[in-house]
Design a protein around this nucleic acid. Structure first.
Lengths: 207, 207
DNA sequence: CGAAGAAGTGAACTGCGGTTCAATTCTTGT
DNA sequence: ACAAGAATTGAACCGCAGTTCACTTCTTCG
């Protein structure tokens, strides 16, 4: 039996997988799912089209994993920002600033994560993603209620509604730009402050 | 010159166009854009595939018009509900109840209008659609501020955020169901009351 | 009625991108 | 070095849905 998968090969395989994954991630960040064909990913990763299928059974699996990687990063950033702050009002502000700041810095990616039409597998992941955001906000609200800073309320509903509010107010304009192709970022920074006020009021926080 | 478009023919043509349009609308309401192929629309309208192209230059134009028809209906219903009520708090409640009621009664359509992946032309219309909702809510908020019921605020931001909040809180579950294929409607009615409270707080209304 | 020409038809075409696979190149252990 | 067998390649394949077009059917009016 003259061939056994040696650690050396194993390493190269997983390195290759990683290169494909980050190539896909880069393409999505730059051009969204629209530009993320298997051929393009392979080219960028420096492998043949067929090789992609050595690592992922189908394109859906590849893009789903790309989405998961990118979204985990975002949710972690927001959750971390929320955890650091003291009062609920401060935490909400931190969440919005973090979210908005990251989205503005990478509008194409923000659009891809939040709204861009894609594979059903991605849609499924998107639900998880939004749920994760909602959970982070729910934690924050629960803490605020326990601390007596916020009135009693349906935490799940408030959290989901806030996720929607933030997404719509900050990202809809970005989405419009991304869909139109131009990468220009409209003036949203001024709106951030207003959105924070809105969000604090919405959960009954007095800043 | 032995052929002139007589009123009779003209009428049949526009009737045919109308049939195609409402066939497409019905399909979208039942199965979303996913089931809305040109062939399916033609079959349902009782015409040949090619005939669709006598009335619409491309499928994108057809679905865009379908979207416009359906969305105008929704926005009108919400705007009407908002206009009838007295205080801003009551108006917001009416908006949410109307929106939620209609969405629950036609979840597949709600998903198609708000989130289902579709042609770029539809995405463009969706922006108009959301803007129209935001305008209706903006009117309501402006009225409330003028009446001294609401604190001063950035009306555009509040309106956009509220649109997002309502959409996310009420329709995300429906979308999940629609995406999964089942037409079952989760228990959202209880959430409606909580969402109304959230919304009233968010614009600074005291119910 | 009959010619002119539009409306209507549906099978065939097309373009696109995911997927496959026979051939080739590498890696391993004797 | 060599055989066994895996990894890699990339051109060909395939399925799908939008679109086209040669042909048929219908309508109009002298």
């Amino acid at each position: 039996m003259p061939y056994r998968r040696t650690p050396r090969v194993e390493a190269r395989l997983s390195a290759s997988r990683e290169r494909i994954l980050s190539a896909a991630l880069a393409i999505v960040a730059e051009h969204g799912y629209a530009g993320c064909s298997v051929a393009a990913v392979a080219r960028r990763a420096g492998v043949a089209t067929g090789s992609v299928y050595r690592h992922f059974p189908a394109k859906a699996d590849l893009v789903a994993e790309v989405f998961r990687t990118a979204s985990r990063r975002e949710v972690d950033a927001v959750a971390r920002a929320a955890a650091l702050e003291g009062t609920a009002a401060e935490a909400v502000a931190a969440v919005i600033e973090t979210f908005a700041g990251r989205a503005l810095r990478a509008p194409r990616m923000a659009y891809a994560l939040l709204a861009e039409p894609a594979d059903p597998a991605v849609d499924a992941e998107r639900l998880v993603f939004r749920r994760a955001y909602a959970d982070a906000i729910a934690t924050l609200i629960t803490r605020g209620i326990a601390a007596g800073e916020l009135p009693d309320q349906d935490v799940q509903v408030s959290a989901a509604a806030l996720v929607g509010a933030i997404g719509e107010a900050l990202v809809a304009p970005l989405a419009a730009g991304a869909a139109a192709g131009t990468a220009r970022v409209p003036e949203v920074t001024g709106d951030t402050a207003h959105l924070i006020t809105f969000a604090q009021r919405s959960i009954g926080a007095v800043p």
